[in-house]
């Protein structure tokens, strides 16, 4: 019941944030400069290769004669993990190369949004792990495990942003 409440809360929260971001984006001329566009293109490429490589690896891992990953995880969950890995690779690469936020974009709204996503998904996942409901018939499924993947992925993004912000502050101070 509490999980359902948190889920609904997260959905409403995401809708509000999305609308406020769209409204703000329309009112400001937010853009990426030439160096950022170049770096983002390279990051897209890295993300694509990671996803392609992950998909290839997944084929072998799901093979019944080899590892048979399906015993431990639902195929849709496995595919979701691969896709999220590609997306997060893109995001973290962009953050590391200072091309994640557009020109003049401080990123505080994103920081807040990602923190909420990590906290809410983290709470749900810890609860699921604690009461064992993360496994359905002995396997992690998309329904039970996607929250954990989201929490871990956005945590990686959050940490990357915070490290980069600290580095940028040091650079400005120099």
């Amino acid at each position: 019941m509490k999980s359902d409440f948190l889920g609904v809360f997260l959905l409403i929260f995401l809708i509000i944030i999305t609308f406020s971001m769209i409204r703000r984006r329309r009112s400001e001329s937010r853009h990426y400069d030439e160096m950022q566009l170049k770096l983002r293109a390279a990051a897209y490429q890295t993300g694509f290769y990671v996803t392609a490589l992950g998909s290839l690896l997944l084929i072998f891992l799901m093979d019944e004669d080899l590892v048979n990953l399906n015993r431990f995880a639902d195929p849709s969950f496995s595919v979701f993990v691969v896709l999220m890995t590609g997306i997060i690779t893109f995001a973290v690469t962009c953050i590391a190369k200072e091309a994640f936020f557009p020109v003049g974009g401080g990123g505080n709204t994103y920081l807040f949004l990602y923190t909420v996503i990590v906290v809410l998904n983290g709470i749900l996942s810890i609860r699921r792990i604690a009461d064992g409901s993360i496994f359905e018939n002995g396997r992690i499924t998309f329904r039970t495990g996607s929250g954990l993947v989201c929490a871990m992925s956005f945590l990686a993004v959050l940490i990357a942003i915070l490290i980069k912000k600290a580095q940028a502050e040091d650079e400005v101070a120099e």
């Binding site: 400069d33 160096m35 940028a168 400005v172």
Partner: peptide
């Protein structure tokens, strides 16, 4: 009209 990081780079 570029980012600070671009000037720095």
């Amino acid at each position: 009209d570029v980012s600070r990081q671009t000037i720095s780079a």
